[in-house]
Design a protein around this nucleic acid. Structure first.
Lengths: 213, 213
DNA sequence: TAATAAAATGAGTGAGTACTCACTATCATT
DNA sequence: AATGATAGTGAGTACTCACTCATTTTATTA
């Protein structure tokens, strides 16, 4: 289980250790079933030290959320998306999508432990959803809209498709692909992730309809 | 919050009450945060009565999972899917998809409390994923394959798209639509669910590519 | 080096939990 | 009505967990 690198965020050494350990333990057992004593042991600190940095157990979760949101919205999501989309000037849509999807898969491989905890909490708590919306969705949408406009102008995307629909389509296909890999990876011998992505992009671009429809 | 009907399954009255209550409480708070005392209070029985029917708290969850997966796979998933897809003989693909998606949205509205618990458990426990795969995914795939063959023969679906890719595409779009409605329903004034579905079907059928791609 | 401050510790605490069990109420059978 | 069986109860028990705090360790400064 791969823990994201939290260094360089201006945290005290122990605080960082605690957060990393918490991600690990939360992601193994879920928030409620995780114990502060296990988090402490795993982090190599005394249990009391945890409460020097975090007022409550819930606060540790909040810390993780903030970290994740920072990483995802700041460094990873926005920058990566922008990088790929800004590089898209001359490229075919197919190529841009391919780079984008591969990059996202790699990201999820990296932050899956965190993501699993956050998804669980988001399913049950409105305030977590709100944080996700404000910090990730709303911000990414800005970039997507620029990309959408560019692509429509170049005639690479149908003009009657709105940015919201565009991102939902891509996201939907991405979610299923990742869920399959992460949750049912053993069930389908997805021969080759590369081929798989190519097929999905083909459907995103041209749809499933045959010549009689 | 709508609780599925567990009657007619040959359960003792109290047992049924306990399961219904457990679904309610688990689905509000998640498994670990739910307490047996609350489940008992909510079911209108003494706490001890719970442990007459279920050896442990975990056993209650297992009871729910079994019930849910049985209900979902038997009555709700397989039958509903078969009904719609078997009725597809003369119909346009667009119409079949529309019926299918609307039906699934209605289903999720109905079983969301349970689904949320199951998703959480599936994220953390391999055996739950296995049960889902064996009882739902593998069984639905059989029906989907028949549908796929029929549609390809009629020329309504591109012949180079495999059944797995077909279901993944439809499912992906469905997941995002439902997640948006259920989790971020307040954020987007999804003007009209009907229009929304039409747009999604359009993308599933014809893709997003413009005339220059 | 001594004095002071800050960081870290981990045994201890009390609230709360899953689960037990001695007992009671209900019901069927003779 | 008496007997036995079954279902239901809820106070009690053993235990776990988040959180505290008196004490010790480490870092800082004079």
């Amino acid at each position: 289980m791969d823990i994201p690198d939290l260094s360089g965020l201006g945290l005290a050494e122990k605080e960082q250790k605690i957060l990393e350990s918490a991600i690990h333990v939360f992601s193994e057992k879920g928030f409620s079933a995780a114990t502060t004593s296990e988090i402490a042991k795993n982090a190599g600190v005394a249990e009391g030290t945890i409460f020097r940095y975090f007022k409550t157990k819930k606060d540790i979760l909040r810390g993780i959320l903030v970290q994740t949101i920072n990483i995802m919205s700041g460094k990873v999501v926005i920058e990566a998306v922008e990088k790929i989309l800004n590089d898209s000037e001359g490229k075919e849509l197919r190529v841009v999508l391919k780079e984008f999807i591969h990059d996202r898969i790699k990201l999820v491989d990296h932050i899956f432990p965190m993501a699993r905890v956050i998804i669980t909490e988001a399913l049950f708590h409105e305030d977590v959803r709100e944080a996700i919306y404000q910090n990730i969705i709303a911000r990414v949408m800005i970039t997507i809209r620029r990309f959408h406009k560019q692509m429509v102008e170049r005639g690479l995307i149908r003009s009657d498709i709105e940015p919201e629909l565009l991102i939902k389509t891509i996201l939907g296909n991405l979610v299923v692909l990742i869920a399959q890999r992460k949750l049912f990876g053993d069930k389908f011998e997805l021969d080759d992730i590369d081929k798989e992505v190519d097929k999905i992009i083909d459907v995103i671009l041209y749809g499933i309809a045959g010549d009689k429809e």
